[in-house]
Write a protein that binds this DNA or RNA. Structure first.
Lengths: 132, 132
DNA sequence: CGGTATCCCGGTGGATACTG
DNA sequence: CAGTATCCACCGGGATACCG
C-alpha cells in the first residue's frame, strides 16, 4: 500500500534525523547548558565544593528531586564529582571536575552576553508587543 | 486556618522566586540559547538571510509550527528581522539583526567547547554506566 | 508559499511521603 | 542529611487541516 510506505518513509526520515541529533556534539552539550538547573549548579560549584543542603539553599527554588537528578546527570557526564563521607548522618560533597571547570568560562561568556545585551532584548520585546 | 496560611505563604515564596528568575538576564537568555531550535536557527542565519522554506529544509526535522513559533520569538527579542515582500505567492525573508549577530560568537564558543570535549563527556558516561 | 487553528499524546518536573 | 518512590498536573510540541 502506497499510504503505508509513505508513512514508513516518514518514520525512517524521523529516525535518521534523531540519529543526527543524537550524534551532534553541540546539541548534546546544549541539552546540558540549556537545562534550567545544570548551568546554575555549575556556576554555584565554580568557586569550590558544596554540600547537598548548601546547594538546595543557594539555588533556592529547586526541588529535591531536580537537585539530585541534575547532579546525577552532571556526575554522569564527568562534570561534577560526588564524594560520600561515611558518618552519621552521612555527608555528601559535590565539586567540579577538571572537565567541569573548562565549561565555566563558556558559561561566563554567556552570562556576560546576557548582562550586556538584555536591555536591548527587553527593549525589542516592548517594541514588538507595543506594535499591537 | 493555619493550613491555608501555610499554603499561601508557599504560594508567595513561589511568586518571589519566579520573579527572581524572570529578572535574571542569564536565565532569560539561556531560555533562548538552550531552546532546541533557537540556536540552530541563529546558526543557520549566521551567514546570510534565508526564506521560510529554506530554513524548513535546512534545519530538517523542525515542524512548521515550531519554525514559525521560534522565528517569532527571535523576532520579538530583536535577534531576527522578518521581511515580507508582497507578491503572489508572498515571499518572506529572515536575517539576523546586528544584535543577533553578536550572539553568534557566543554560540560558536559553545560549539567549540562541545566539539573539543564531547569525547571526554561520552567516555565519562560509559564509565558511569559501566560501573553498574 | 507562509502561515494560523485545533487536537492530543508523552515527557518534565513539582508535591508529598517514606528510608538508611 | 541525603536520597528514593509515587502520583499527577501541566505544557511543549507533533500531526493534521484549513486560510490569504
Amino acid at each position: 500500500m502506497t499510504t503505508q510506505s509513505a508513512q514508513q518513509r516518514r518514520a525512517e526520515e524521523r529516525i535518521v534525523y534523531d540519529a543526527f541529533l543524537a550524534v551532534c556534539p553541540t546539541r548534546q552539550v546544549l541539552a546540558t547548558v540549556g537545562d534550567k538547573w545544570s548551568s546554575l549548579l555549575i556556576t554555584a560549584l565554580s568557586d569550590g565544593s558544596r554540600r547537598h543542603s548548601q546547594l538546595r539553599t543557594q539555588i533556592g527554588g529547586i526541588s529535591q528531586k531536580m537537585l539530585t537528578q541534575t547532579l546525577r546527570e552532571l556526575e554522569r557526564d564527568g562534570l561534577v564529582r560526588r564524594t560520600v563521607t561515611l558518618q552519621v548522618p552521612v555527608r555528601v560533597d559535590y565539586e567540579l571536575t577538571a572537565l567541569g571547570q573548562t565549561l565555566v568560562p563558556v558559561l561566563r561568556a554567556l552570562k556576560d552576553w546576557s548582562e550586556t545585551h538584555i536591555g536591548e532584548v527587553l527593549a525589542a520585546r516592548e517594541r514588538y508587543d507595543g506594535a499591537t
